[in-house]
Write a protein that binds this DNA or RNA. Structure first.
Length: 365
DNA sequence: CAGATTTGACCAGA
DNA sequence: TCTGGTCAAATCTG
């Protein structure tokens, strides 16, 4: 097992080096080879861990992140690497989590890191994978399905989604405890504006729009529906890009998730590198919450449920405060994206890339 | 009181 | 006419 740990640490070091130099060498050819090397290292470690897992409990890698001091004593981890493990790595996961929610159309070719965390988070080659008791994943789904919309209006101008608008469909694991109707956390704040029984579907479809729609004319919307054939998962259809966080006066700058996501994304696509980073410990805490619940207060699809409260008991139930996914599921969803491989960082963070390219381009509605 | 969800009604495309 | 997407009044919570 020691050699496996060494392998992982080696991979982390490579990833760290890559990250540190990414701003300067993102477009360099050697960057790709470095990525591939990291992929190999972690893939190797993954195999070993897998073998280990068969006979023992999951190796407590979380210690790597949560208690680096202790681990350092045991493993003599490079202090710099240790610090990085508590920051950048987490950032990447944070970013990837949020982005994968809506951007699973392509599979990440970025195999930055492979590691395991508690429930078992793995970042594997060509993508990210998380192991957990129950397998569930975020899958990219052809964006050309789902119902067709209607149109605009007469009396009151009804803004309908036009079919030309970008549409991304992802499948995410439904929460297994508490209210399973809770849509996935994706870093944005959503407000539910409708729910409808869909013909041929056992479960109703919920309609959400960006909380900042009125304030910033943000056109982003999403639909959440439980899958008929797999009630343990939800299909989320994102439509329209968020423009709210591009406003200088926007209360919630980029995806509220601990301020790192877009920064990290910028790093990934060669933009000026930010400084802030979130530690994995915080990430885990963010996901699980002190008591295992609650996500970010200002973001997430649960913003409404957590702050407002719904009208009385409904057929669809209410969003509870345990508005978050079990980390294992989320991680699972995040890493097991079954999407196809691409080789562009921008494919991992398309929305952000787009945002950076075409600035304030809203007013779709 | 502000802001959120619920839910029936409305609207328009197929 | 059917169906999916949206509106908005009612209702609820903090």
């Amino acid at each position: 097992m020691d050699d496996t740990i060494s392998l992982i640490l080696h991979g982390c070091k490579l990833a760290k080096d890559l990250e540190l130099n990414l701003a300067n060498s993102a477009s360099q050819p050697e960057t790709l080879s470095k990525c591939e090397e990291i992929i190999r290292v972690f893939a190797n470690a993954r195999e070993r861990l897998h073998v280990h897992q068969l006979g023992t409990t999951l190796y407590p890698l979380p210690m790597l992140f949560r208690e680096p001091q202790d681990l350092q004593q045991q493993q003599n981890i490079d202090p710099i690497l240790q610090e990085w493990l508590g920051t950048s790595c987490t950032s990447a996961m944070e970013t990837l989590f949020h982005q994968t929610q809506g951007v699973m159309a392509e599979r990440s070719a970025l195999g930055l890191i492979e590691s395991k965390i508690g429930g078992g988070i793995q970042m594997g080659s060509g993508g990210l994978a998380i192991e957990s008791g129950s397998r569930s994943d975020v899958q990219a789904v052809d964006a050309s399905d789902s119902g067709r919309g209607s149109s605009s209006s007469s009396k009151r101008p009804r803004t309908r989604i036009n079919d030309d608008a970008e549409k991304r469909t992802v499948r995410v694991p439904a929460q297994q405890f508490g209210n399973t109707e809770i849509p996935p956390e994706d870093g944005f704040s959503w407000r539910k504006y409708g729910q409808k029984e869909i013909l041929g579907s056992r479960f109703p479809r919920a309609y959400y729009r960006c909380t900042n729609q009125n304030l910033y004319n943000c056109p982003a919307k999403k639909q959440v529906q439980r899958l008929d054939d797999d009630p343990c998962r939800l299909e989320v259809v994102y439509r329209g890009e968020h423009t709210c966080h591009m406003s200088a006066t926007a209360p919630s700058a980029p995806p509220p998730a601990p301020g790192i996501t877009q920064e990290m994304a910028q790093t990934m696509i060669g933009q000026p590198q930010p400084s802030a980073a979130t530690s994995l410990g915080r990430w885990v805490e963010f996901r699980l919450g002190p008591g295992g619940g609650a996500g970010s207060s200002s973001s997430s699809s649960m913003a409404a449920g957590s702050s407002g409260g719904a009208a009385g008991p409904s057929t669809a139930g209410r969003f509870g405060k345990e508005a978050d996914y079990p980390i294992s599921d989320m991680a699972d969803a995040m890493f097991n994206s079954g999407s196809s491989s691409t080789n562009s960082m921008e494919l991992i963070f398309p929305s952000i890339s787009e945002e950076k390219r075409d600035q304030p381009s809203d007013k779709n509605n």
